[in-house]
């Protein structure tokens, strides 16, 4: 339809296209261009912030489970004393961590979905006025995103609880019983 030679100017292209029937030339607004650039920067910023937040969360979860497991040393010691195998102790602690952080992930997902809906009705509406329609990603992307978010939560919980669980696994039952709080 249109062939450009090297060194062709934008104005020349516009003029040439303008000669064609049924073709309307719409120039990108500076506002839209700067919005796109700002959103791209925002996305990169959010990605970096999320990575830092996940690292901080990992440390926090590890400290939290370290305290939780230490508080339950006597209970763990009792279980070991009545025949629990070390891997059963690990499974119990890591299982609890997975359930707790998985539920927390689900709660975060609901909260995030709520924020996204608010965004669609506020900032999205504003962009719509500027000619940038807000469109939801395909359902499959949303579903995969949700599953990935919960999976990352569970993963963080399991990794965070691993060291305290491993420490509890290695201690003798007597040491666990005498360093823990009462079971009942």
């Amino acid at each position: 339809m249109l062939q450009l030679s090297p060194g062709a100017k934008i104005e020349e292209v516009e003029f040439a296209l303008g000669q064609l029937p049924d073709v309307k030339i719409v120039e990108g607004s500076n506002v839209l261009t700067s919005s796109r650039q700002a959103l791209s920067s925002l996305l990169v910023g959010i990605a970096v912030f999320t990575a830092l937040q996940l690292t901080a969360l990992l440390i926090l979860v590890s400290l939290l489970f370290s305290a939780i497991v230490q508080e339950r040393y006597r209970e763990v010691g009792l279980l070991r004393a009545i025949g629990a195998r070390p891997h059963q102790v690990m499974t119990i602690i890591l299982g609890e961590a997975a359930i707790i952080t998985g539920l927390a992930g689900l709660a975060g997902l609901v909260f995030g979905a709520g924020l996204l809906m608010i965004f669609a009705r506020s900032l999205g509406f504003y962009f719509d006025l500027l000619g940038i329609p807000f469109s939801w990603p395909p359902a499959v992307v949303l579903q995969l995103g949700a599953v990935a978010a919960v999976a990352v939560s569970v993963f963080l919980g399991v990794i965070g609880a691993f060291v305290p669980a491993w420490r509890a696994r290695r201690l003798a039952p007597q040491a666990l019983i005498h360093s823990g709080s009462p079971a009942t």
């Binding site: 009792l78 004393a81 025949g83 039952p173 019983i177 009462p182 079971a183």
Partner: peptide, 16 residues
């Protein structure tokens, strides 16, 4: 511990 030894502790040791 499970099969050969039964242990009764001096403190309340039931799981609450």
């Amino acid at each position: 511990r499970s099969r050969h030894i039964g242990f009764i502790f001096q403190f309340p040791s039931l799981l609450a």
